[in-house]
């Protein structure tokens, strides 16, 4: 799986539209939702995401791996959002307040952590077979093994096995968050 990702970035660097599309499909969701945290307008955020992807395409020579690709997009979207505040002609104290909160590093970092985690959870759910997915969902709602087993009418052992499967996916993906944060915070 990691090998595939390497290929995609390389093809992207070489100007392959299909590879670019694949990257877009993978990362759109988290980037879009991230943008919405700054500006709660779907139209505006869609435009910003569009511009950022165009920018990343123009600089495609600079990226050798997906974390650096994603970090650039996060930064680019944030900057566009902050610029949007600057240009908004609303003489409102609230706007200044917004700039202070949204302009900060911790808001930026927290938002990234949140969206990456959400994406991980969403991906994990999608990839899990139906049985594991139900169990995992109950997990997320804080149920214990025995409670889940009782709820679904299966054995505790089954619950544990399906747990492990979900955990494996999570582990891989966590490494990605780490890489992205490392890139961004350099």
């Amino acid at each position: 799986m990691i090998f595939n990702k390497r290929n995609t970035i390389e093809r992207f660097r070489n100007g392959d539209h299909k590879a670019f599309r694949a990257l877009y499909d993978t990362h759109f969701d988290s980037l879009y939702l991230f943008g919405l945290k700054y500006i709660p307008s779907q139209d505006v955020v869609e435009d910003i995401v569009q511009e950022s992807f165009i920018k990343v395409w123009e600089r495609r020579d600079d990226f050798f791996d997906e974390p650096s690709f994603k970090s650039f997009l996060y930064k680019s979207i944030r900057n566009s959002c902050l610029n949007y505040f600057e240009h908004k002609k609303v003489k409102d104290k609230f706007i200044n307040y917004q700039k202070i909160i949204f302009g900060g590093e911790s808001f930026f970092n927290d938002s990234i952590i949140e969206e990456e985690l959400n994406q991980i959870i969403a991906n994990t759910l999608n990839e899990l077979p139906d049985a594991s997915r139900d169990i995992y969902m109950l997990y997320l709602n804080g149920l214990k093994n025995q409670e889940i087993a009782d709820d679904l009418g299966i054995s505790v052992n089954t619950v544990k096995t399906q747990k492990q499967r979900a955990n494996k996916f999570l582990r891989h993906r966590l490494i990605e968050i780490v890489s992205i944060l490392t890139c961004i915070l350099q």
């Binding site: 879009y32 869609e46 395409w57 959400n118 969403a122």
Partner: peptide, 25 residues
């Protein structure tokens, strides 16, 4: 978390992912 997931899914459904890509392309 469950409602987070549902909420997120709803927002994404109304996003114009395909249209934005067409504009990019």
């Amino acid at each position: 978390t469950l409602s987070n997931i549902k909420h997120r899914k709803t927002i994404l459904e109304s996003a114009n992912k395909e249209m934005v890509w067409n504009k990019i392309e």
